[in-house]
Design a protein around this nucleic acid. Structure first.
Lengths: 258, 258
DNA sequence: GCAGTACACCGTACAATGTACAATGTACTG
DNA sequence: CAGTACATTGTACATTGTACGGTGTACTGC
């Protein structure tokens, strides 16, 4: 960051990002200067590989540049800045998601597929939960195609247009929230190189005094119960099943009422 | 970041953070050396003020130091590092939340209050959605007190301990996800100094081609409908009402079934 | 009262980041 | 063939968290 003010995305030419996202139709017949050594797609793929293998923090302009074999500053001739690169990464992955036709007649089955597909995507690319916004995504072909496909899963539910949109956002919000929690939990045990049990053991003296059953009766009881039942205070698969059932039941109250 | 490896939190002495969170009972009778110029609480409050007024990015160790009137490095005699400072900030705000007794007899009313209290907190301190983890929070008195209080809202629902915990996490997940979206949407219009309408206008040429009603029939129809109905593609209050109703209905399917 | 020591405080320094800027060279247009 | 637009690059700068070592202070043991 060069300045203290928040980095403005593509200041001056707001459509530059959109042109990039939509593949810039007037790009093929280039005019002057030397040929480009790589392609935007290669740059984005390199960034994706870095993020998947070493986390979002590993996606630096220099690292991306080295991965594609150009200097750091050359990356800026392909993308206006890092923010736009991240947008492209997200849209690219959205674009590559499979879009099978909705055969199932039950809306619950279709929405379960939607949720599971998103869970898989975010689990394979955990950094996306730190980047992908639900309410103001980059309007690229990936985002739009995904949106259209997932909206189609609501066909036949009888929901209004506005309710369909709200329902989809709600469903995706659950998935994102869940994967984010799962990722946080996994990272906590991973990068401290300390299991739940070890951590608990090491902090026994402080915790014994803090976790007073008189002051926090429910917390202590539930903490113990959760630990015994699922080996840890938080189990990803249990939470997923619980949350998805609740979400679909919540939507059922709207859909099946009609 | 001094090294390329991820910063380990309190390496060597894992209970240091906990001692800080719980107010370090053996801290009052200090032994040697000069008296401390400020207190941990002052440091945390300064960091909170910075985050609230200028966003999370404004919370730098130097800025915090200057705000309390010490040098940058002196902050490290109060907190082990920035990660711990953020933990303290979160726990402090949790600790200060009001905890009114649960008078309402209807569980839906009580859970609505829980959701609204969290929405208010996160809306007043939007940076918390970037920091606060649902699944592995800092185990301080604020987190624990809040947890206990919110668990109590489920008294009388007949849920098992495990289900109560899962239900609370689910409810809070919705709130966090919602506020995050609202924050993203607000920031998008704010720091580009461009309204929804202006943005749409400026990108008309590209968008007209991209938003093809043949390829994306539902998206185009719904985008238009949303824009006309609520002036923007995403309306925070509508989304809140929708989501909260769905969440409570989803839980009702579990609770009222008993 | 004095020596010793533990600790608060601070200045300096370093590695890493995004990216502005200006120089250099290339390949197309007239 | 001259001119120019553009890809590529090295250097540079501001900003970040924090490691390190020096300095002075106030308490402990004699």
């Amino acid at each position: 960051m060069a300045t203290a003010t928040p980095p403005t995305t593509g200041a001056g030419e707001p459509s530059r990002t959109l042109a990039l996202l939509w593949g810039d139709p007037s790009a093929t017949p280039r005019r002057k200067g030397p040929g480009r050594s790589v392609t935007v797609e290669q740059v984005v793929d390199a960034a994706l590989a870095l993020a998947d293998e070493h986390g979002l923090a590993a996606v630096t302009m220099r690292a991306v540049a080295e991965a594609v074999g150009v200097s750091a500053m050359s990356v800026y001739t392909y993308v206006p800045g890092k923010a736009e690169l991240l947008d492209l990464m997200v849209d690219t992955l959205y674009l590559r998601m499979p879009r099978p036709a909705w055969r199932a007649s039950e809306w619950r089955t279709r929405l379960t597929r939607v949720a599971e597909a998103n869970r898989e995507l975010l689990t394979s690319h955990p950094w996306m939960t730190e980047v992908a916004a639900l309410s103001r995504p980059p309007l690229g072909p990936g985002v739009l195609g995904k949106y259209e496909h997932e909206l189609a899963a609501f066909d036949g539910t009888g929901l209004t247009d506005l309710d369909t949109d709200a329902a989809l956002t709600y469903l995706l919000g659950f998935v994102q929230s869940h994967v984010r929690s799962a990722h946080d939990a996994a990272r906590a045990t991973t990068d401290t190189a300390m299991s739940d049990a070890q951590w608990w053991e090491a902090n026994q003296p402080v915790l014994a005094q803090a976790f007073d059953p008189q002051t926090y009766p429910r917390s202590v009881r539930i903490g113990r119960a959760a630990g015994e039942a699922q080996g840890s205070a938080w189990n990803a698969d249990s939470a997923w099943d619980f949350g998805l059932d609740r979400t679909l039941d919540g939507l059922a109250a709207l859909i099946d009422r009609l």
